[in-house]
Design a protein around this nucleic acid. Structure first.
Lengths: 189, 189
DNA sequence: TATAGAATTAAGCAAGTGCTCAATTCTATG
DNA sequence: CATAGAATTGAGCACTTGCTTAATTCTATA
């Protein structure tokens, strides 16, 4: 209900769009303000600087990712299935999630000279977080062999590709989950 | 041997690095010049404007991609295997190829308001070019069923993920090709 | 109705941007 | 050696950038 909170959320939504479209450096504070139909001064009333807008979005993204990771690790196959299922369900029902997902990938591949962001990204690097789970899956013989990092990067690249497409063309149908699971799960199982 | 040609190539190499790192808008012509140890005036002696530097790189990228696509389409499995094999061999032996590969992916996901670039990208969109090949593979029953575009986006996302990693950490080992083939090829074959 | 505080604007500064251009240095060849 | 033409510089223009600030409007409540 608070007018200020509502405005701040609106500004974040607009900023997310522009950041996805043009990257960090390509986004000007004036453009965010203009697209929000607001003076650029107001933007700096709600955020202390451009970087902090980006940071706040990264933080939201990190939280969003964590929620998707909360299922326990003592069932790697189940975990993976649930994670992909959750991700796809969200991609289908919640456009903001898709944008955030793509945004987080862009963030990973863009240098923003800021140690705070770099640190945040460490905690948002899903590939790194998945490695122990994949190792466990491999130990159980449920997952394919091979460098777990490659496995991770490839699976995640695939999901990313699908997400990118979904954000660009929202009515793209998503592939079946089994199909993606097969990428990782040992087919001789 | 020509001094001017050599300089131009050097400037393109430097520009590629900066574009990958900071994206189109984040890259300033002064920074390219500075990193090349040259005045910014010289940059505009060799290129008519910033956009044309980018365009020239995109063109090189498109050519590089085309070379990897030249094997005929009447053997989808063989074609795919060869393409991935080529890509991995290049990633291993030629750092410039890897950078170009990542650059082309960044290009696809960045809006640069330029119709010429947009047109070029049409011809560089590997996903679109692969679709007929995948359809043919599916018709023969050699490839998995499912939306060919999703298949494409996923496979390509996986390869991209691997390439990104290779560029960031050059001594990352690449996964086995069979492993990637399995993503697409029908396992009941 | 009066007023404190939040929401908002418009103007503007210092620094950085893409790009130009006159002026200089280098270099190959007659 | 002389000189044409290429390579290179550095100053600078017009514009955009992130951000500030004084001034104004809105809005809730005493």
């Amino acid at each position: 209900m608070d007018k200020g909170d509502e405005r701040k959320k609106q500004l974040l939504r607009v900023a997310l769009d522009v950041f996805i479209e043009k990257g960090y450096y390509g986004t000007s504070t004036r453009e965010i303000a203009r697209r929000a139909g607001v003076s650029s001064g107001l933007l700096f009333h709600y955020f202390s600087n451009k970087e902090s807008i980006y940071l706040e979005l990264v933080n939201i993204g990190v939280e969003e990712m964590k929620i998707n990771m909360e299922i326990a690790m003592n069932a790697p196959c189940e975990y993976l299935f649930q994670t992909i299922k959750n991700t796809f369900e969200q991609l289908e029902s919640n456009p903001f999630f898709g944008k955030m997902f793509v945004f987080m990938d862009n963030v990973q591949h863009t240098t923003v000279n800021d140690k705070e962001i770099e640190l945040l990204l460490e905690s948002a690097d899903i590939c790194k977080q998945w490695i122990p789970i994949i190792l466990e899956g491999q130990r159980r013989g449920e997952f394919r062999d091979g460098n777990p990092h490659s496995l991770c990067v490839a699976v995640f690249g695939a999901i990313q590709g699908i997400a990118q497409e979904k954000v660009r063309i929202p009515n793209t149908p998503l592939p079946k989950i089994d199909w993606l699971m097969d990428m990782i799960v040992n087919s001789t199982k």
